[in-house]
Design a protein around this nucleic acid. Structure first.
Length: 137
DNA sequence: GCCAACGTTGGC
DNA sequence: GCCAACGTTGGC
């Protein structure tokens, strides 16, 4: 199983709304690198849900429930979407500053490719972030 | 609100 | 195929 991280501006689509809806279609990605990551997602893969701009922290865990299909928000074959559902809210959100301060997370795209909205997370990084959040998984 | 970093577009 | 111009993202 692979791990990922997706970003969302909480004022546009935040964790609370995600939980309320129960699941969502992750669409609107218009960047090739991010798109390729969407295409690599398998059903059951887990994702960190990150709040950008406001909050700037990882707030929860989600799961892929439907693998990539043509993005319904645009009539263009190039772009895809996946369906995800919330799994759990982190006990303690993990802030960007905390991630930056941790040497074990220095390779995360969140830090060195900050504009990428869908990015892979290694198993190691996943575990470190969970530990920082106070979860024992 | 500013600006650095990055991606995309389009002229040549 | 290069690169300047432009647009967008996202941290600060």
């Amino acid at each position: 199983m692979a791990y990922w991280l997706v970003k969302s501006e909480p004022f546009v689509y935040g964790w609370a709304q995600f939980v309320e809806e129960g699941s969502t279609c992750w669409s609107g990605v218009r960047n090739y690198t991010a798109r390729n990551n969407l295409k690599s997602m398998k059903k059951g893969d887990e994702l960190f849900f990150y709040h950008s701009n406001e909050g700037m922290e990882i707030v929860g865990i989600a799961r892929v429930i439907k693998e990539h299909y043509p993005d319904p928000t645009i009539n263009d074959e190039r772009w895809v979407a996946v369906d995800i559902k919330p799994v759990k809210k982190l006990k303690r959100p993990v802030s960007l500053s905390l991630i930056k301060a941790d040497k074990r997370l220095s390779e995360m795209a969140l830090i060195n490719n900050s504009r990428l909205s869908v990015q892979p997370v290694s198993k190691k990084e996943w575990d470190v972030v969970l530990k920082l959040s106070g979860e024992n998984y």
